[in-house]
Design a protein around this nucleic acid. Sequence first.
DNA 1: CTTGAACCTCTAGTTACTAGAGGAATTAGG
DNA 2: CCTAATTCCTCTAGTAACTAGAGGTTCAAG
Lengths: 144, 144
Amino acid sequence: MSEITIGALSKRSGVKIPTIRYYETIGLMDEPPRTAGGQRRYLDHHLQRLRFIRHGRDLGFSLEDLRALQSLSDNPDQSCEAADAIASQQLVEVERRLKGLRALRSELKRMVQSCAHGTVGECRVIETLSDHSLCNHAHWKPEN
Amino acid sequence: MSEITIGALSKRSGVKIPTIRYYETIGLMDEPPRTAGGQRRYLDHHLQRLRFIRHGRDLGFSLEDLRALQSLSDNPDQSCEAADAIASQQLVEVERRLKGLRALRSELKRMVQSCAHGTVGECRVIETLSDHSLCNHAHWKPEN
DNA sequence: CTTGAACCTCTAGTTACTAGAGGAATTAGG
DNA sequence: CCTAATTCCTCTAGTAACTAGAGGTTCAAG
């Protein structure tokens, strides 16, 4: 049975020490056992959970999303529609960002090239970002 | 000449009123003229700038990034070297983000597909997040 | 048994907003 | 011209998700 320190847990999970403690205070990680002196000693399931969180954060899930997903896995007999919804929503978000970034990349490329011979005045990057017509997802809701 | 209120600006830009004022306090938006009574009245260039910020934020740029990008368009006569540096840096950033998002998308797609409306017990969304070995993009740096 | 690394708690700072209170200004209707 | 509804003003404080630092304690190697 491997009891590891918070430092070791941090290294194995890739999550910084203060962040691990933060997750504990907000109840996302459960409290680990302590030594007589009061230091945290973690077990394998803590590492599992932390990797789950880390991975989820990397994928753009909020801590609340992860909390929801975690509670889903705690009672595995319900339908997985909720989990699917959370993941699908992330997917839509990602597609949207990809689209915008591809447009921006081509503009930046163009700019870097034209910068070799001109002034910033010819730069279209600002216009690209400013121009609403180039924006394919509606975030100007007239009724809003 | 169109002078619009902060509410109208908010509607046309999709940026909330308090956020517009916040951008003003941190110096990202310049102070608009005021009425005798002290209310802000915006002009076209404010809308341009706000849309620029909105889109940039949407694409994941920090306010500091946008400040840098904006300084390009604010002095169009500056040397190409400075502009090129900022633009190139942004291009690298964009490429990096595109790469990450593409990996993320494939993983999310896989998650959503494998969640074909069973119960949570069979749902791979949670499993995928828990199991690091199922993750095909490396975000666990062992040396870290 | 000492000593240096790693741990502890606590407070406060960061980024990028968002909400609400309490009050003044503007505008549309009568 | 006056009133009422709406919108605006400033200010404080709260949010998410950390991150840094101070000042002190515990652990483990030698």
